[in-house]
Simulated assay, not measured.
Amino acid sequence: MTTNLYDLPAEGLALSKACGGNSGDGESESCATIGAIPGAVDAYALGDSKLGDGSPLLRFTGAELDALADRIGTIRGTAA
């Protein structure tokens, strides 16, 4: 049975910033945020720090995040 990640509660969700690669304008607040969804196995939330606490959160399984990272690497020509 597949779990709908959006049905999982996000109370206690601790997000960490994943910053870097900004446009060189000195602005350092343009960060993706990511954190494990508490109480869930292999479930993560991804947000945007520029939007603050009201940022909508996209939710992914670990496998989905891995596939996303691989796809980004392919698009950018940096895949291992």
Rank of each mutant, 00 (worst) to 15 (best):
E27C: 05
T78V: 13
L15S: 06
Y44I: 04
S49L: 01
G20Q: 10
A80K: 14
L51K: 15
G26P: 02
G62D: 02
I34P: 00
P56R: 04
A43Y: 01
A32F: 01
V41D: 14
L51Q: 13
A40Y: 01
G62K: 14
E27A: 12
D66F: 00
T33F: 02
S30H: 10
A45F: 05
A69I: 10
V41K: 12
L8A: 14
A80N: 09
D7W: 05
L15C: 00
K50Y: 01
A79D: 14
R59V: 03
A45V: 05
L13H: 12
D53K: 03
V41F: 11
A40I: 00
D70P: 00
Y6Q: 05
G35M: 12
K50G: 02
S28L: 08
G77E: 12
D25C: 06
T61G: 13
G47M: 05
A10C: 12
L65P: 06
E29N: 09
T74Q: 13
L57M: 05
N22G: 15
A63D: 14
T78A: 13
A40C: 03
N4E: 12
P38H: 10
G35L: 13
I37W: 08
S49A: 15
T33P: 04
S49N: 10
Y44M: 06
L57C: 02
A10K: 08
S55C: 07
G35C: 10
L58Q: 04
K17L: 09
A36P: 01
D48C: 13
A32D: 07
D53R: 04
N22C: 13
L68S: 07
C31W: 01
C19F: 00
N22R: 09
R71L: 11
A40G: 08
T33D: 07
G12A: 04
D42T: 02
G52L: 14
T74K: 11
G77K: 04
E27D: 14
Y44N: 12
L46I: 12
I72V: 14
S55D: 04
L57F: 01
F60N: 11
T61F: 08
L15K: 10
D48W: 08
G52H: 09
S49Q: 07
D42S: 14
C31D: 03
S28C: 12
A10E: 15
T2F: 12
G77H: 06
A45M: 07
G12I: 01
L8V: 05
S49F: 02
F60R: 11
N22I: 06
G35P: 04
K50M: 07
A14V: 15
N4D: 15
